[in-house]
Design a protein around this nucleic acid. Structure first.
Lengths: 342, 342
DNA sequence: CAATCAAATGCAATCGATTGCATTTTTCGT
DNA sequence: ACGAAAAATGCAATCGATTGCATTTGATTG
């Protein structure tokens, strides 16, 4: 059994017959305390098993040395890569990172963000949930000029630094690739269009069609939440059309996968009859048969960049009222699901 | 531009000409404050945009209402399932969850755990890093009787509640299955044996061999860190043997996958020539060709259980000196990589 | 209408670390 | 050895919310 409570600097002070201020300064290597005293205090701290209470320190300093990151789902490869990138930079700069997931639910996102505010994180990095439509929880940060960086799924209505990928170009590249493969009726399966990522990809898709003199058929564009079931249902819907598509540009790899599995099951050949392209380069997309063509987003680098921008904001006293948007390039990875050998 | 600092209960009190205590009590719905006053204070709080400062509250209450969870890697399906399970129970019970990943590095784990202690989490749920050999950071919790629950990768040396899967049985089931498929030389690829999960699986593997009168050939047992490259190298090493294995029981799905990909590439048929079984049921294992037989661990349920046990500990005043170990069942999922149709 | 008791509210200390402004101690030149 | 300057340390307030113990207000009753 150990002591009732943790030893504090006051306990240390009492034991050494000095003041708490001296202890505090010594532990923080303040040069105002002589080297000898510092050493002695540190030794005593070690001996007593003293552990600083960050909460008290944070309260006094009005700063938590912590940055928060909120993602829709931590087990999406893209998001966990971003998290690793953030941690990489943040830890090196001496910040702690608290991670949370919204499960793509607006309500949980609200709760998380408020809790992070209440815990006074020094800044927040966030990719918003699919179903988020209210932004007052983010206004909590933006309105009070607490550093905030959006990545991937940004909010246009709120001014802040942003790290995004070139979704328009990604959508364009996918579509152009499919056209070059000789496809004429290219369907597009996309997520909620209030999310700029999806609407940009769709714009790229449309632009590519137009540029290559192909008709944009709204019947071929399906909007849903891009879950595995959503992918299945979308494919079934597309197959029911009198004039079937010969390619599907899916909004993510999950739906691309479920499309492929379903098509395989009912005996439709991929890519011969219907070509499939996904988005985000989930690890499985490389290893399924056929392997899935997709767009690679530089997640780790985006995380690094977002953390750099956030820390820059945190550590710059002057509130520069200018916000920056960094756009990262995407890479089209062509695999079996869309590439016809001849 | 907003006010310099956040409004506090004192600001509210001043504005309403009442005391801070009353404000505090009103906001916490303390019945000692009349309903009328409560309503009035809450209205004012809303109007001023008051947001409670959790840090101050935590300091005073010596409690953070937060539980920490540390996993080796958040983007492993098993671990993210556990996290979701923990969140599920914790949120329902009014706790916040802070998630961190050790990247399987002992040093990072130390740092994270210390930081969580310094932030006075009410309890900790952890699966230790592969390379952790020192435990003083965990002693920080165990020694001070701060609620601690290990899951999956536990530490025998430290007494605490534990949630594990029946790894011995899992290893046994896999091996028995392979034997029933007619395999005679079953190799085993495993991780660091200081981790009980791995040594238990290996024990199960050996026991199954013995029970079925098969020889245990140490040459067929390879220990490494189970990364993708590790899997490749292990397979290459096994193929060099004069007496090759006809099955490999891999320590995780990642190495099972890399084994399959390599065997495919060099023209060795799976499962005909060499059968493969993985562990953990990563999402990709179902969709690769051939699909990977594996052991399913009930991650979400383990997370729920761990959170329940932790919260139970937190909320029970009496320090019961008894610790519980909950063992969850595993399920063998037989897929193409080990099942020979005839 | 005074006495009694309950209800409502306030005072002041507390949680543990930090820091501006003393105060004390040491050092040093003369 | 004395005073001044430098170095070392201490005092007390602060960060914002909570709470045990008053104190005040209000209601009730004889």
């Amino acid at each position: 059994m150990s002591s009732k409570t943790e030893p504090t600097i006051h306990d240390l002070a009492k034991k050494l017959n000095i003041s708490a201020s001296t202890v505090s300064r010594a532990l923080n290597d303040n040069p105002r305390i002589s080297q000898k005293t510092r050493d002695m205090i540190k030794a005593a701290a070690l001996e007593l098993g003293y552990q600083p209470n960050t909460i008290a320190s944070n309260l006094r300093n009005r700063k938590s040395n912590t940055i928060g990151i909120v993602v829709p789902l931590i087990n999406r490869h893209f998001f966990s890569s971003v998290i690793s990138g953030v941690e990489d930079v943040a830890f090196a700069a001496g910040y702690n990172v608290v991670i949370s997931q919204s499960n793509d639910e607006g309500e949980k996102e609200q709760r998380i963000v408020r809790s992070m505010f209440a815990n006074r994180v020094d800044g927040l990095i966030i990719s918003i949930a699919m179903k988020t439509t209210k932004f007052d929880h983010l206004q909590l940060f933006a309105g009070k000029k607490i550093p905030l960086v959006f990545f991937d799924r940004i909010v246009r209505e709120i001014e802040a630094d942003r790290v995004v990928v070139d979704d328009f170009n990604g959508g364009y590249k996918v579509t152009k690739h499919l056209i070059e493969q000789g496809r004429k009726r290219i369907a597009h399966l996309t997520g909620p269009l209030n999310l700029i990522t999806y609407s940009d990809r769709k714009r790229g898709y449309k632009q590519a069609l137009v540029d290559h003199h192909l008709e944009v058929d709204e019947e071929l564009i399906i909007v849903n939440n891009l879950t595995r079931t959503d992918g299945l249902m979308a494919v079934q819907q597309l197959l029911k059309l009198k004039n079937r598509p010969d390619a599907i540009f899916c909004g993510n790899d999950t739906t691309a996968l479920s499309a492929i599995l379903h098509l395989k099951e009912i005996g439709i050949k991929v890519p011969e009859e219907i070509a499939i392209v996904g988005f985000s380069n989930e690890p499985f997309s490389e290893v399924v048969t056929p392997s899935i063509s997709t767009i690679k987003q530089p997640g780790f680098e985006m995380g690094q960049k977002a953390a750099q921008m956030l820390i820059e904001q945190i550590e710059t006293k002057e509130q520069t009222a200018t916000y920056e948007t960094v756009t990262m390039p995407t890479e089209l990875i062509i695999r079996e699901s869309s590439f016809l050998k001849r």
